[in-house]
Amino acid sequence: MALKGNLRDFSTTQLLNLINLARKTGTLTIQGNEIAHVSFREGKLIYAHMGNENGNLAKILRNAGKLSEEQARIIETKARGTSDKQLGHLLVQAGYVTQSDIIQSVRQYVLDVVYKLFTWVDGLFRFDANKLPPPEQITIPIDLESIIMEGSRRLKEWEILQEEIPDLDTSLRFTDRPDARLRNINLTVEEWRVVSFINPRNSIRQIARANNLSDFEIRRIVYGMLQAGLVEFVRAPKPKPATEEPVKGTRRAKSETKEQSPAEKRSVVTRLIDRIRSL
C-alpha cells in the first residue's frame, strides 16, 4: 500500500514513529527545499543522505575531524570509484582512522540528516517498501526511539505541541505494548522527573506543577514520550451529570429513555446481526 503525503499534514516525527512501530523496511524520500533519502531496516534507521552527495565517506570523515582537508582531497581523488566499504577497509588498514571512527562519523552524519528533517514543515514524502541502499554502502542500525525523542526536543513550535496535547488535565500511563523496545531511550534529568510522576491519578498539569515546569516545557517532554511510545493518554469517559436533561427538541428513542437489561440488549444486538447478515 502507498505511504505518501505531505509533511504539512504528517510530520517527520509521526512518520518515524510509524516506521518504528510497524518495523518497516524501505526508503523514505522527502522532497523539500532539498531531497532527502532515509533508509530503514525492520524499523531501525540504517542510512540517510541529503541532496546528491550520497554520504561520501571521505567527506564524512573530514567533516567529523577524523581526516584533514588535504587527506580527504587526496583520498577522494585516488579512491574514485571505490565503494565506501572498500574505502573504509583501506583507511583502517593504512592506520588513518579506526573502525570506531568510521562508525561514529557515519552515525553522526546520518543523525544530522534526520534531525534536519524534523525542522521541515512542508515537503512531499513517499516510502518505498523494501528499497535499500546498495550493499557496498556503510549502514549502521540505529534505534528510532531515541532519535524521535531528540528530534522532538528540537521541535520548538509551540502551536504544534499545543495542538497535540490540548488538554493538560489529561493523565498519562506507561504504554502496555508487548513489542515496545524501550531499553535504549535516553532521558534527560527533567524527563526522568516527569517519568517518576506518571500515573493515571496525576494529570499532566499536576506533574508540571510538581516539577516547576511551564506548560510549554511539560508539553515538550510529554510529546517526546508519546511519540517514542513510552506513554499514552488515559482516556476516561466524561461522567455525565446525574441531572442531565434531554436536549430540547430531541426526541429520544425508546432505547435511550429506558435502561435495558443486558439480556434485552444482547437480544437486540443478535437480531441486528441476523438482519444485517441477510441483507
Binding site: 499534514d9 504528517f10 430531541t250 444486538v269
Partner: peptide, 23 residues
C-alpha cells in the same frame, strides 16, 4: 453530542487516501 446520545455504537470513517485528514 446530540447525535451521540443513546447510541449503540459508532463507526469512525477515515479516508485512507488523505493523510491530511488523519489528525
Amino acid at each position: 453530542d446530540i447525535l451521540s446520545q443513546g447510541m449503540l455504537g459508532f463507526v469512525v470513517m477515515v479516508d485512507s487516501t488523505k493523510p491530511e485528514t488523519f489528525r
